[in-house]
Write a protein that binds this DNA or RNA. Structure first.
Length: 592
RNA sequence: GCGCCCGUAGCUCAACUGGAUAGAGCAUCUGACUACGAAUCAGAAGGCUAGGAGUUCGAAUCUCUUCGGGCGCGCCA
């Protein structure tokens, strides 16, 4: 049993972050000896894997970044810096390249030590302290409780959930939140629509559902349920009597269905916030007062929109918020003509409430059709939190459902796709989740039902799952061959010396950095591409073994070597499993 | 008319947030199974990053501009 004699990186497994520290220390040494001026900004220095692996293991831009403020040529900084970096125990070679990059080659043992960490951590490998327990609120889905979740909601649900999981892994204290829009005109219409279905359930002929109300068939069940519970009690009563009851019953029923759908999708929300409760608590009034004290509220008039002037435009004085002071295009109204709060006013109060609950970091996941709303809410958050709170809005672009390249019509009448439930029934939650995460959120997305379930390299879900299953398959084979696959943490990893093996080891060591980078950027889709690359590297190495028998994982008569290689295979499985966990996708042990 | 998002290989998408020779898959062409899963792998070919100008050591990325697409534009949520 040999233990690699390399530096341990305590509680910080991202080797690149570690080397930024090493580089900064070396630069400070140069400052102490007068080679560099005393006050320099090191914050722009990066340490990353070079694009071309032939350049080495770590590339830093330090010399180029500092050149200007140090009044030196990049190479005149790079040369002495490189000399100092070469003294580091883990660095075996280095060179200055191009305009002033410093490329470092690290000892194989350094990378094997990262593999050892992965084996020790298992699925938890890549967990980071970066977030330092800071509270983050991720609000997503937040679909109106006026009908079942649609395919369009699915993307936001998946992106939000994966982002929340990712931030959690990166060390943030994450709360997953759903804002229920159970206040305002829309839910009143829901209540009215429900009343019609209620009367229908009691045998009345209601005819066509009037325009403006919700015609969906799903409300029939709700009406029937109320009829069953209350009988004819609401018939011939004024609207003021039955509306609150119809409304709340419908909301409760539909929210229950939404929760069930989310559950099936694997989304578990921590906090459901009610808009109605918020308004009734007086939170909106308080937010309004706060803004008033800051002199950000005034009575004024707005210009009608240039493009399409509403027919019923009526120039009137209204209560406006000075969102232009915070980067918005025009000031925004907070009160409707009847004196009640606008949705915007409620939303200000809601985000203020989040801030009061301790969330300075807020992330909202919205559909692209709300794009015009981003500036004003960011402005409001900035104002109401005294610039201490920060809101990031991720807009999810449209999802189109295709079947073999043909657009599937989203029409209820045609009996085709519309709801998330339909999508889940067709391809299952794992495929929905992974596939939705293979694209940047701000790019439009075509979801092809056929391609998403295809078993080929063209389909990332399948390919990554296959990679995971293959790691397990190798383990099963090894066990059958009589190799002990327990306690691989203690396997002699220094027996790993083939370039393909070491390339895999390096890739595994990238995982903690990938987690941190994706979390910082709020971009969970990066994980999908990393997992795909890792799976590809693993499949490639696997195939080499079928051509060159000495590269097989199990080598007869050499248990140590076999165990070292199996440890590598296990680590690949851990990283894929770790990534799939972030995505909320079940890793499979076997392909069917 | 204004604001936001997008434009990268024939097609679908990446590019570590300003880094080195812009990368994958599909499709096309050439190869590899006495199977630790060939549902895979190795290779070839494919690009003026929509066009133009600017910023700097360095631009697909930042700024300006033109073109083309999506979304939105008081008292809906």
């Amino acid at each position: 049993m040999t233990k690699a004699a390399v530096s341990v990186i305590p509680a910080l497994m991202n080797p690149y972050r570690h080397f930024i520290g090493v580089i900064v220390a070396a630069l400070q040494g140069m400052q102490a000896s007068g080679e560099l001026p005393p006050s320099l900004d090191f914050s722009a220095i990066t340490a990353e894997p070079p694009r071309d692996p032939a350049h080495g293991d770590i590339a830093t831009n330090a010399a180029m970044v500092l050149a200007k403020s140090a009044a030196k040529k990049p190479r005149d900084i790079a040369e002495p810096l490189l000399a100092r970096l070469k003294a580091d125990a883990d660095v075996v070679d280095g060179a200055v390249a191009g305009p002033g990059f410093i490329n470092l080659k690290l000892a194989d043992a350094f990378w094997r030590a990262r593999l050892a960490e992965c084996l020790k951590e298992g699925i938890a490998y890549g967990d980071s302290q970066m977030g330092a327990g800071q509270k983050v609120n991720v609000e997503y889905v937040s679909a109106n409780p006026t009908g079942p979740l649609t395919v369009a909601h699915a993307r936001g649900a998946v992106v939000g959930d994966a982002l929340a999981n990712l931030l959690d892994k990166a060390g943030y204290a994450v709360t997953k939140e759903y804002y229920i829009n159970d206040s305002g005109a829309q839910v009143d219409k829901l209540g009215q629509s429900t009343y019609l279905r209620y009367k229908e359930a009691l045998g009345e002929t209601i005819g066509e559902i009037p325009t403006g109300l919700y015609p969906g068939e799903y409300l029939k069940d709700v009406g029937t349920a109320i009829a069953k519970r209350d009988g004819a009690r609401w018939i011939d009563k004024p609207e003021a009597d039955w509306l609150p009851e119809m409304r709340s019953f419908a909301i409760a029923t539909l929210m229950a269905e939404i929760r069930t759908d989310l559950e099936t999708l694997g989304v578990r929300i921590d906090v459901f916030s009610s808009e109605r409760a918020l308004v009734e608590s007086g939170a909106v009034d308080r937010a309004f007062e706060t803004l008033t004290r800051q002199k950000l509220i005034y009575q004024g008039r707005l210009e009608p929109p240039k493009g399409q002037k509403p027919d019923d435009w009526e120039d009137r004085e209204q209560t406006l918020f000075r969102s232009t002071q915070f980067g918005d295009d025009v000031d925004r109204p907070l009160k409707k003509s009847d004196g009640s709060w606008t949705y915007f006013a409620n939303d200000i109060a809601y985000h203020h409430d989040k801030f009061v609950r301790g969330f300075a970091d807020m992330i909202d996941i919205w559909g692209a059709d709300h794009g015009g709303y981003v500036k004003r809410l960011k402005a409001a958050v900035s104002a109401i939190t005294g610039k201490k709170g920060e809101l990031d809005v991720k807009l999810c672009q449209l999802v189109r459902v295709l079947k073999n390249g043909e657009l599937v019509r989203m029409s209820k009448r045609a009996g085709t796709f519309e709801t998330l439930r339909d999508l889940l029934d067709e391809v299952g939650p794992d495929v929905v989740r992974f596939t939705m995460l293979t694209r940047k959120n701000d790019a439009a997305f075509d979801f092809d039902l056929v391609k998403a379930t295809e078993q080929s390299r063209d389909n990332p879900v399948w390919y990554v799952q296959y990679g995971h299953a293959r790691t397990r398959s190798v383990m099963r084979q090894a066990a059958a061959a009589g190799i002990g696959i327990d306690g691989l943490v203690t396997a002699p990893l220094d027996r790993l010396s083939d370039t393909g093996e070491l390339a895999l080891v390096r890739l595994i060591a990238q995982w903690p950095r990938q987690v941190e980078a994706a979390a910082l950027a709020h971009e969970p889709h990066r994980i999908a591409f990393f997992l795909y690359d890792l799976a590809a590297a693993f499949h490639a190495h696997w195939t080499r073994g079928s051509k060159e028998p000495e590269l097989k994982f199990v080598i007869e008569g050499d248990a140590d070597l076999s165990r070292a290689r199996l440890a590598l295979v296990q680590a690949v499985g851990f990283v894929i499993g770790s990534g799939l966990k972030v995505f909320g996708v079940t890793p499979v042990d076997e392909m069917r």
